[in-house]
Write a protein that binds this DNA or RNA. Structure first.
Lengths: 191, 191
DNA sequence: GTCTATATTCAGATAGAC
DNA sequence: GTCTATCTGAATATAGAC
């Protein structure tokens, strides 16, 4: 069992720095300084700066897709499935907040053809959710909102979690967070 | 009445380019090329690249604060006030989608001391909303969700509007959008 | 307002010695 | 794996002529 690995260290420090300063504003020199070695050493671990971004973005995207696929192919009802999806977002955001931060903030920095490839993954994820919402509406489980609006409201409501876990702030209890988010989205804010 | 103004043109084209490529990735050369003149001419209209960003960010922030302050100082009930705030977000996002896009995506690129100044404006805006939510909860109008969670869910739900108006897609009718967002946030997705 | 330089700084990446 | 040195390109911004 590997206890520590310098390439992993390098990637994790890069990830945090990029989260702090933004991808473009983070230089290879910044990362090297954080690692206490010279710029040229960084290229022992990666071929290019963009490789760092691509690795995390596509890796974490795959986790979201995997969770989504497992939920959709289950025999749960649409509302239970939606609950599971919310749960998976909280789990990933609380365990990998910096990776999720990158997905939210830095995907625009991908270069072609990775950029187009990534957009397709995002669109595909949203379509999977859209099909679930549609199914729930047709079954009379969900209210008949416009699919685009419902999809955007739900995904937006899940997109800020990472921030609570990426900062030093007293973190929100993931279990309690899930309970309140589900209740808010399902039954609304009005008493 | 001024029909056209070259500085306004310059700023608007800059705004759109920054929206397309991101602030850091947009060069003064890109903007000049879009304007069909040489880079050096750009400095007829601005003192620095950052001035473009700062102008739009603080200008649009002021609009949001103004709308918020007007709502809060009205005699509406908390739920009516929240409805008005949602309405103001849709109005600003639909009339100034690129300005709002900048607020969502590019505020990290501000330099000190503007950066800190801007964060304070954002925090202040969120606190104003938070005080409204708290008031509504205490009056029994809103459910007793955690204030931070409720605030984040609501603001996140309003943060994607600009995208629908910044693209060429068939735009969402603002009136209908408001109706559905209010219904979703107030009464939830469950039938 | 527009151009042709040009100053300055800095970033990504590589070569090659130890 | 680490260093020194360097190539190459690019970006913001300014000076000064027309």
């Amino acid at each position: 069992m590997k206890v520590s690995n310098k390439k992993e260290d390098f990637l994790q420090e890069s990830l945090k720095l990029i989260h702090e300063k933004g991808f473009k504003a983070t230089t290879m020199r910044d990362i090297a300084e954080r690692m206490n070695f010279d710029v040229s050493n960084s290229y022992n671990y990666i071929k290019s700066k963009h490789e760092i971004l691509e690795g995390f973005l596509f890796g974490t995207s795959a986790e979201f897709h995997s969770a989504m696929d497992n939920v959709l192919s289950s025999s749960y009802s649409p509302d239970e499935k939606l609950k599971q999806i919310i749960s998976s977002h909280i789990t990933i955001a609380s365990t990998k907040p910096f990776e999720v931060a990158l997905m939210v903030n830095e995907w625009r920095n991908l270069k072609e053809p990775k950029y187009t490839e990534y957009i397709k993954l995002r669109d595909s994820y949203e379509e999977k959710l859209g099909s679930l919402l549609l199914e729930g509406i047709e079954m009379g489980v969900f209210k008949a909102f416009d699919i685009t609006i419902a999809k955007s409201v739900i995904l937006s409501s899940l997109r800020w979690f990472y921030d609570s876990y990426a900062t030093n702030n007293p973190n929100i209890n993931p279990i309690e967070l899930e309970r309140q988010i589900v209740s808010f989205l399902f039954k609304g804010f009005l008493e």
